[in-house]
Simulated scan of single mutants.
Amino acid sequence: MGQIMDAYTYLHVVVADAFVVEAKACEHVVCFVIDMGFRRVQFEGDSLIVIKKLVSCTMDHLILSPIIIDNKQRLGFFIEATFLHTRRDTNATAYALAWEGRLLWKNATG
């Protein structure tokens, strides 16, 4: 139906790279959708690397591989799960949340 079901931001303190952050964000979303009990879902995201890794049958030794493996195991819960890449500039909600999280972090750390 194209509705936003939830939105939040959280702080990552020690992060290897941006792809790890994107993979962890995906992990949070997958867990949320499972907790909500949805069985047919379409995930949208602006990280093409993470989406490609989630739909790929091959494994590599990237630093985000353990997160991808965990996410793939969780995807077994769904009857149907599809992934759609969205351009970053069209994902205004995610950008706004990221910016809000950054401001909260800056205010908390002085």
Rank of each mutant, 00 (worst) to 15 (best):
L75Y: 05
I49P: 00
T90Q: 08
A94D: 03
Y95E: 04
V20A: 05
L62D: 04
C26P: 01
T93L: 14
L64F: 12
G37D: 05
E22I: 03
L97Y: 12
E44D: 12
K24S: 11
A108Q: 12
C31E: 13
Y95F: 03
L64W: 03
E100T: 13
D35L: 11
E100L: 13
M1P: 11
A96K: 15
L62P: 00
F32H: 15
A94K: 03
K106C: 09
A81K: 04
L11I: 15
V55H: 04
G37H: 05
D70A: 14
F83A: 03
G76R: 09
T58F: 04
L62E: 08
D17C: 14
V55A: 00
G37S: 04
T93C: 08
D35C: 06
V30G: 10
T90I: 02
E100P: 00
V30H: 12
V20P: 01
E44C: 12
L97P: 09
E22L: 04
C26H: 01
V20H: 05
I4Y: 02
V20I: 15
I68R: 06
V13H: 14
G110M: 14
M59L: 12
F32G: 09
A81T: 02
L48N: 05
M5C: 07
H61Y: 11
P66C: 05
F77M: 08
A96M: 13
F77Q: 10
E22Y: 06
M1H: 07
T109R: 13
N71C: 15
T82W: 00
Q3I: 09
D17T: 01
H28N: 11
R39C: 08
L84R: 09
G101S: 11
N71D: 07
M36A: 15
K52D: 09
F83D: 01
L11F: 11
A18D: 00
T86Q: 09
V14E: 11
V14W: 02
Y8H: 09
L97V: 09
